[in-house]
């Protein structure tokens, strides 16, 4: 299983975003760097959900917003490492729609289940494969990276305990 490293601020922010937009789906991009062990995400960018017709069970990020996110990431020396969205009152598992609409091979798709307004499980799925034809989602281990202080380490432990 590959590992997705998330800075604790990012982990907190994407889960809070899901609570904020509940009962609608939230979505956004994850920015970071890549090395042999996988993605290390240091920043996240909130995006608007353009599926206002069905925002409780669908999300879509406007391409122009992605263009701007990609440009901004590049200026900071970061890459788009993946995307996140929420599943209001649904498990944190990828759906058929998520799979059909996933095209960023090698990137991480992070899903947070938001139950009755409260963020519960957060899972990450790597879009593995090399083409549209052989793509597949592989669950990843999320490693929340503390900023080095003791209280943050404890916070990470408590996050693990909740799972």
């Amino acid at each position: 299983m590959s590992i997705l490293q998330l800075k604790s601020e990012v982990y907190t922010a994407i889960r809070a975003h899901g609570e904020e937009t509940y009962p609608h789906e939230c979505c956004g991009a994850l920015l970071g760097t890549h090395d042999e062990s996988g993605w290390r995400v240091v920043d996240s960018v909130k995006a608007g959900n353009t599926r206002t017709d069905s925002a409780h069970n669908r999300y879509q990020i406007a391409p122009i917003e992605l263009v701007r996110i990609q440009r901004a990431a590049r200026e900071k020396g970061l890459e788009i490492a993946g995307f996140y969205h929420s599943h209001p009152d649904h498990p944190a598992q990828w759906s058929r729609t998520d799979f059909a609409e996933a095209h960023w091979l090698g990137c991480s798709y992070v899903i947070t289940a938001v139950a009755k307004g409260k963020a519960s499980v957060t899972n990450s799925f790597l879009l593995a494969g090399t083409t549209e034809e052989d793509k597949r989602f592989e669950q990843e281990t999320i490693q929340v990276e503390a900023s080095g202080e003791l209280e943050d380490v404890q916070e990470v432990t408590s996050i693990k305990d909740q799972k």
């Binding site: 069970n57 879509q60 998520d98 609409e101 095209h103």
Partner: peptide, 10 residues
């Protein structure tokens, strides 16, 4: 060049 991003719960 930007691949699209979308999905849903089911």
């Amino acid at each position: 060049i930007i691949p699209s991003i979308a999905g849903g719960t089911f």
